[in-house]
Simulated scan of single mutants.
Amino acid sequence: MSLNLIKLCVGADSVEDLESWIEFRLGEMRRAGEVPEQVHTTRMVPKRVEELLDGGSLYWVIKGNVQCRQRLVDIRPFVDTDGIGRCHLVLDPRIIVTDWQPRRAFQGWRYLTPADAPADLGAGRAGWAALPTELRRELADLGLL
């Protein structure tokens, strides 16, 4: 059974902002002659790696709501130049928009079971994703999204 992670997306104001940042970083890597892959660095290494890599995703909390996810491709523990253990979460750069789900702020990442994860925004609700970000945020705040 797969397992997911959930994390605050610090610095992004919207899914579109996150997508722009990812494309910018991948472009920089291509220009530098590096293999383009999206890597998010964390301090803590997940203990349940096999479950996470069995179809799991990283769900992003943006402005107080889970709004999207990215599939986990690999988890690579490493030691940085200061001798501190860290972890690279390698992500599929494709963003999958989800139903919005309110979340309070927290530090680091948390495990997220499939039962607690918001559903992907299906074809029947694709129109919601086309709404302007501010309107989606206001509707979510009112509990209508």
Rank of each mutant, 00 (worst) to 15 (best):
L145S: 10
L112W: 00
G33R: 04
R48S: 05
Q107L: 10
E23P: 04
V66M: 06
L139G: 06
E138Q: 14
N4A: 00
T41Y: 05
M44E: 14
G11N: 07
L135E: 13
V45N: 14
C68N: 07
G64P: 00
G108P: 03
A105N: 14
V49Q: 15
Q101D: 11
P93T: 07
R30W: 05
R137C: 04
L89Y: 03
E19Q: 12
V73I: 07
R25L: 09
P118K: 03
L5M: 03
P102C: 06
K7M: 14
T133E: 14
V90Q: 10
E23G: 10
P93H: 08
D74V: 05
A140E: 06
K63L: 09
G27D: 01
E50Q: 13
D82P: 04
P132G: 08
V73D: 12
L53G: 05
P77L: 12
L121M: 09
T133C: 14
R103Y: 15
F106K: 00
I6A: 07
P77V: 07
R137M: 08
T41G: 10
R110M: 09
R103D: 09
L139Y: 03
E34S: 11
D74L: 02
T113V: 09
L139N: 07
R104M: 09
V45D: 15
D74H: 03
C68P: 02
D120G: 08
P46Q: 04
P93R: 10
P102E: 03
S57A: 12
L52I: 03
L144T: 10
A32S: 06
R71G: 04
L121Y: 00
E34I: 02
S14Y: 01
Y59Q: 00
P132V: 10
V49N: 15
A130C: 11
W21M: 09
P46I: 00
I6C: 09
N65C: 14
R137Y: 00
Y111S: 14
